[in-house]
C-alpha cells in the first residue's frame, strides 16, 4: 500500500503506525511518488497516536528522534521510506540499531543522516552573506536538504551583533535572526538594498580568489568534488 501523509513529523508517525504491519508499505508525503492509477491511503494526522508512537520509539532508543528529524529533512525522494524502514527495524529489535551497519535498513538511514549533517557543515563554509544598507546580512542559498534553521546557531554564535537572514530559495523559507531571537518564516522573494561598500568587497573577494589559485596545478575535478557546482550560484567567486 502507498501511504500519503502531510509531511509533518506527526503525520509521519501516524503513517508509521498504519503501515507498520504492511510488508509492502510505501510511505511518502510527495504525491509525485505515486504510480499511475495507484490508490493511496490518505493518512489523517493523529497527534495523540503520533506522540504515543514517538514515546515508544524513544524508549527503545533515546537518540532516534534526532535520526528521524534528520531523515525527514533529507532531500532525497525516498527519505521518508528510509526513515520508515529504519524505525520499523528499531521497533522490531526494541533496542538501538544504529551500529548494525550491515543491515540495509540501517546503512541506508545512516547514509542519509550523514548527508544532512555533511551539508550543514558544508554550508557553514559556503554561505555567502550580502551586507544590506541597514547592516543586516542576507544569504540566499539552495541546499539539498531542509536545513536553513539548523545553520542559525553557528552564525549566531560568531556574529551575535548582526541580524541575518538565511534564505532557502528553493523551499521558499528563511531562517531569520533579528539580533536577539531566531525564527523560521515563509519567504518567496527578498528585496534588499545592498550597502555602499558591498560590491567593492565582493570585487576584492573575487580578486583574492583568483590570486590565491595556482593555475599551473589545475585540478577542476577535485574542486568540483569538494564544492559541487550546484552550490556555486550564490557564491560571488564562482558565479
Amino acid at each position: 500500500m502507498f501511504y500519503l501523509f502531510d509531511g509533518s513529523e506527526n503525520g509521519f508517525l501516524t503513517a508509521f503506525l498504519l503501515a507498520f504491519q504492511d510488508k509492502n508499505a510505501r510511505i511518502s508525503s510527495k504525491s509525485a511518488q505515486l504510480l499511475l492509477g495507484q490508490e493511496p491511503v490518505f493518512v489523517r494526522t493523529d497527534d495523540d497516536r503520533a506522540q504515543r508512537a514517538k514515546a515508544r520509539l524513544l524508549s527503545f532508543d533515546n537518540g532516534c528522534h534526532k535520526d528521524l528529524n534528520a531523515l525527514l529533512r533529507c532531500g532525497r525522494e525516498d527519505n521518508e521510506q528510509v526513515a520508515f524502514e529504519y524505525l520499523r527495524f528499531l521497533a522490531q529489535k526494541k533496542r538501538p540499531v544504529r551500529g548494525m551497519l550491515a543491515e540495509p535498513a540501517v546503512y541506508r538511514a545512516v547514509e542519509y543522516i550523514k548527508k544532512v549533517g555533511l551539508e550543514i557543515h558544508h554550508f557553514h563554509g559556503f554561505i555567502r552573506f550580502i551586507e544590506c544598507e541597514s547592516g543586516a546580512l542576507y544569504a540566499p542559498f539552495e541546499p539539498d536538504n531542509d536545513i536553513c534553521d539548523l545553520l542559525v546557531p553557528h552564525f549566531r554564535a560568531r556574529l551575535p551583533a548582526f541580524p541575518f537572514v538565511l534564505h532557502d530559495v528553493k523551499r521558499k523559507k528563511a531562517a531569520v535572526y533579528d539580533g536577539a531571537n531566531a525564527f523560521l518564516a515563509p519567504l518567496e522573494k527578498a528585496e534588499i538594498m545592498i550597502s555602499a561598500d558591498e560590491s567593492a568587497w565582493q570585487g576584492l573577494w573575487k580578486k583574492y580568489y583568483s590570486a590565491v589559485n595556482i593555475p599551473s596545478r589545475e585540478r577542476l575535478k577535485q574542486m568540483r568534488g569538494y564544492m559541487p557546482a550546484r552550490y556555486w550560484k550564490y557564491m560571488p567567486e564562482r558565479s
Binding site: H124, F126, Y208, Y209, N213, P215, R217, L220, M223
Partner: peptide
C-alpha cells in the same frame, strides 16, 4: 572549515 575551493583543488579557509 573550508569556505571555498580554487580551480587547483585547494581549499580556501583563511585569508592567506
Amino acid at each position: 572549515c573550508c569556505h571555498s575551493f580554487t580551480p587547483d583543488g585547494r581549499c580556501v579557509s583563511l585569508l592567506k
